[in-house]
Design a protein around this nucleic acid. Structure first.
Length: 272
DNA sequence: ATGCCTTATTTCATAAGA
């Protein structure tokens, strides 16, 4: 069974590339992040034509996740129990219809696919360490940990993958000095990942196609990709039972090349 | 060449991304 995860940075803008990539790569289960469309506007027909069932959890302009599966798609969960919402910085909260409302965003979708419980996740960015968004990021991780603690008890075969928006170690950013005082590398964020691993989840580190680092994200600006100035922030966390089945895993940097790529590359994981 | 930002939207400017 072949699993994949990919932050596509708009499924509408990426649809031709996504369709080509699915046909070439032939994954059985795909987690998508940042689809940036409502659930209803997801291009399901185009994906279904390739033999996939679709579970889309989108809200429009921002965020949004989906699962594609050609090995079954059952017990779909849109979001997870206790998932917090975001009420914004004070200036943003003033613009809400109902100030104080913390509506969950579309950042998690789970389903049973071919005997594996799969979660496609898109963690909040955090913006800056002193922002309300950063506090929200940590709250979201705490709630995710509680939800996954319950899930792994019911599903020994579980994969939680996607855009975690945290680089686990300094080796996972191209230059640690550049990220001082930035999100994605702070001790509390890294502790949030460690708390997930403490549930028994293993970090399935993919092989890079080129160079020493399995980066999965490169900024669009300043030629970051050809200079390999990247980050490993897309992660595959798997229970031991799934990790024991891994026969290979790689970052598909080919998908980051050429005209109109996402700023993230897909990760592909093969299971026996 | 892998090549110097991209996306969606209350659009020609802005906010967000990481």
């Amino acid at each position: 069974m072949r699993l994949a995860t990919w932050n596509v940075n708009s499924v509408k803008a990426r649809l031709p590339r996504l369709i080509d990539w699915l046909a070439e790569t032939e994954p059985d289960v795909v987690g998508l992040q940042e689809i940036k469309v409502t659930s209803a506007a997801f291009p399901a027909e185009e994906v279904e034509a390739l033999g996939y069932e679709v579970a889309a959890h989108g809200e429009g302009r921002w965020n949004g996740v989906a699962l594609l599966s050609r090995v079954g798609l059952e017990r779909v969960s849109l979001g997870f129990p206790g998932e917090p919402g975001y009420e914004g910085e004070p200036a943003e909260a003033m613009l809400l219809d109902e100030p104080g409302l913390r509506r969950p965003e579309a950042r998690a979708v789970g389903a049973d696919c071919g005997g594996v419980r799969v979660w496609s996740l898109y963690a909040p960015n955090g913006r800056t360490p002193d922002s309300a968004h950063y506090a929200y990021k940590l709250e979201w991780y705490a709630a995710l940990r509680t939800a996954l603690a319950a899930e792994v008890k019911d599903w020994p075969q579980l994969v939680a993958y996607g855009d975690f928006n945290v680089a686990p170690t300094d080796d996972d950013v191209w230059d640690p000095a550049v990220f001082v005082h930035s999100t994605h590398v702070t001790p509390p964020e890294r502790q949030a990942l460690a708390d997930l691993r403490a549930l028994g989840l293993r970090d399935v580190v993919p092989a890079p196609m080129k160079g020493p680092h399995p980066f999965t994200y490169w900024d669009y600006r300043a030629g970051a990709f050809p200079k390999d100035q990247g980050m490993r922030i897309d992660l595959v966390y798997a229970t031991q039972a799934v990790a024991d089945r891994v026969t290979g895993a790689y970052v598909d940097r080919e998908a980051r090349k050429g005209h109109g790529p996402s700023d993230h590359a897909p990760i592909v994981v093969d299971l026996s």
